[in-house]
Amino acid sequence: MQPFTTLTAVAAPLPEANIDTDKIIPSRFLKTIKRSGLGANLFDPLRYQDGVERPDFVLNREPYRHAGILIAHENFGCGSSREHAPWALLDFGIRCVIAPSFADIFHSNCFKNGILPIRLPREICDQLMQDATQGANSRLTIDLQRQVVVRPDGQEIGFEVDALRRHRLLEGLDDIGQTLQHGDAIDGYERERSASQSWMPAIAVS
């Protein structure tokens, strides 16, 4: 996983609530067996009409074609658990999403793919969207080390992030390797359980 330290990038405003995972990446694009390549179909229903780009959609306009940050309204990422949603964002080049609230599974999937989801109050999201409409000069900086969003005028807005997740993002660490360091505890748990709940059946299909 690519570490996330600081990011300075164009922010694209998407002033809509309840952007669901079917909008982020419709199910017909989930037939891949790889993680890459989904960026072309990110926000497909909003971005294209009959295979042609809709000129009014934000990611089809300059400078937002090169956006690295997305700002949206409440409940971003609701719907399915598909990790294809963060993969599509990442493949497009988005490494940070700012919104007043996120759906749970999407929120946790972001961290596992090196994307930083930032929760900020609605008024602040609206201000940042305002900044983002200023064109090419409207780049935001996200400093994860210091936990601040830096506005184009230099003003800093603090944000909260879970300490462990922050640490893993900063270091680019993968969860599995970390958990396997607790292998003895898992072994012990399994031994204790198989003694106390010996009725627990095993699955085998012949």
């Binding site: 658990s81 599974i105 596992k112 969860d175």
Partner: peptide, 9 residues
């Protein structure tokens, strides 16, 4: 429900 990274985990 979990994501694919968690499936692997």
């Amino acid at each position: 429900g979990i994501g694919t990274s968690e499936v692997e985990h």
